[in-house]
Design a protein around this nucleic acid. Structure first.
Lengths: 350, 350
DNA sequence: CTGGTGCCTGACAACGATGTCATGCATCAT
DNA sequence: ATGATGCATGACATCGTTGTCAGGCACCAG
């Protein structure tokens, strides 16, 4: 019987109410509803209240996707964030700092993990782009980021974090890896060490290479022959690092100090030192801080990064680009901090 | 002169190419482009190749938001995830497990932190809803989640994690808090302890209350008068936990075993024990596992939760709901695991 | 009373895509 | 030759919203 009568009564249906439903209930045009929902001027207070009432009654909510389809500038108020892994504490800190800066502006964050997989990097970026994000914050892992050049030249805001991109000129926020590693070396040398060893991550990771470079160069500056310095690389997990450290420490001329380029490697070295009973004899400085480092015995001296600063800076750059900053791309370098806790202050046994 | 001629040449403009651009370049209708982009049948191979070529030349990418506006079911292939904090390792693990299950289906994840703020919970849920997510995974913190009833009754897939929702019947995936805490108590009692203490988080947190209940009830079952058991609550950070523990241990009749209900509390207790030099005298079992727990001296015995299982289960439920499972809401309980590392196996000093 | 000035308001097209449906063409059986 | 069949294709309406623009009404000055 009633063909049209209840067409706009979403309470009965399972469908979300739209502006038309609200407009019908309030007895106004949909454009007026749009004006009220967007706090635009030009609506009488009486009408405003009626619309607000109807919208609450129907539990109406603006569809941002539909809106941004038509709206000038087409912003979706969402950005894509690509991290090594969302379960990595370092990434988590960056994520959090970014989020804080962006939610203040009503921007939501798509987060995804790339697991050192270059293919995944491209696929996830494509997934973000398909969702029309207003910007990207990426930890690059693929050999080149030139695949995003088309988007970048269309002025899609884009900031790379932790590692600098290759094949594209874009903003980046990175840790001062080389300087941090050099500081670790200098710290150990100043404590009398001459037999230092470097234990590092896979060499295809830019930051790992930078850390090695900084460490080795500092040894060179101190006059230590760098060609004989033990360098063990390709360590990507705790166990391989532990083995490498045990091997090194059991050699005939073991190092008196170790620098580990990354958390998991540091953990592996700590295990090796404990296993061999030399935690208080062999010095250790690790790159990157970690929870409970001060509770170890001895406390672990580290070169601390500042993920929250990286996140905050990246968010700032991204927002500036979103707001129309067209200045030349820049790389921002966040300094590290050496935190003394004991393990790095051990002196070489005579 | 040429008014329309270069209207569809996005290479020259800063605008994203649309289907019309691709269609114009390939010399076909936009519906054909749509068919090709969506792998729909009914397109000759020759046409297909031509469209694919044009789309690659223009670097075209489907606009999912526009598509889902019209598409049946209106799926956006994105979900909202609300966590205590994205920088919290426990949350990170859940996030990661969820992501893995969802990206396999092409679903992207909006992640946000709520920082124990009930207002933020509502605001963030609203932000997700405005973006037309296909589902929600929420860690409830507000007193009641009845505010999402409208969405829930519109069949928006929704799974609560870590804590059960209040004021709404919906799927939930939680840790077996009471049983885990009881197991900790039983473990300590079996080692001869009769003077146990409980150090816990804020009592407005459901999981904290459950853990206390489980712990205390187990003491009761063992015949220990529960009214005199020291219970210190409202500890939300390391420092307050440390102070509480020092105070407790310095009292005239100190406990011989401590159960801490949460990581930060465990850390605080560890500090207190170390400070007072009783790490090897007072037993400790902490709820929730943490990195390097086995590297402490002694290793810290914990009731481990399984965040990855929670995430995986939650993802499974969400996908099932998205796929049209209309069965009654259920609460899934993930069991805990006691991991012996030393601190929980210490016996009371005679 | 008339014309001008604002303020509210809604009709309509458009955003970029997909669902529906009609059309054209080649192929095939009769 | 004729009608039926099936495939490939595109015109058009539509999704929920916003930009544009024109119309209506009240109010004021002359």
């Amino acid at each position: 019987m009633t063909t049209m009568s209840n067409r706009y009564q979403p309470e009965t249906t399972k469908n979300r109410p739209t502006m038309r439903h609200v407009a019908a209930l309030a007895g106004v045009g949909i454009k007026t509803v749009s004006r009220v929902m967007n706090d635009e001027p030009g609506v009488s207070e009486a009408t405003r209240q009626r619309v607000l009432g109807a919208s609450q009654q129907l539990n109406y909510q603006l569809d941002m996707a539909a809106g941004s389809l038509r709206r000038a500038g087409r912003q979706t108020l969402s950005i894509g964030l690509l991290l090594p892994s969302v379960s990595n504490p370092f990434s988590g800190e960056i994520h959090r700092a970014l989020e804080d800066a962006l939610t203040a502006r009503g921007i939501a964050v798509f987060a995804a993990s790339l697991d050192d997989d270059p293919e995944r990097e491209k696929a996830l970026v494509a997934a973000f782009l398909g969702r029309r994000v207003d910007g990207l914050v990426l930890t690059p892992i693929a050999k080149s980021q030139s695949y995003v050049i088309p988007e970048h030249s269309r002025d899609l805001p884009m900031v790379f974090i932790d590692r600098e991109p290759v094949g594209i000129e874009a903003d980046a926020v990175v840790t001062d890896n080389a300087v941090g590693a050099a500081r670790a070396a200098a710290h150990l040398i100043a404590r009398g060490h001459t037999k230092l060893a470097y234990l590092g991550d896979r060499t295809d990771i830019q930051t790992a290479r930078e850390r090695r470079r900084g460490f080795i160069e500092e040894l060179g500056r101190a006059g230590i022959p760098t060609s004989v310095v033990p360098v063990r690389e390709g360590l990507h997990d705790e166990e391989s690092a532990r083995k490498a450290a045990v091997e090194l420490l059991s050699s005939e001329d073991p190092p008196t100090a170790i620098f580990s380029s990354q958390n998991l490697v540091t953990f592996g070295v700590m295990r090796a030192l404990k296993e061999l009973g030399v935690s208080r004899k062999v010095a250790l400085v690790g790159f990157d801080d970690f929870t409970l480092a001060d509770m170890m015995d001895p406390g672990i001296t580290v070169i601390a990064q500042h993920p929250e600063r990286i996140g905050k800076l990246a968010a700032g750059r991204l927002l500036a680009r979103i707001d129309g900053d067209y200045s030349a791309p820049t790389t921002y370098v966040v300094p590290t901090e050496l935190i003394e806790r004991g393990s790095g202050e051990l002196r070489p046994a005579r």
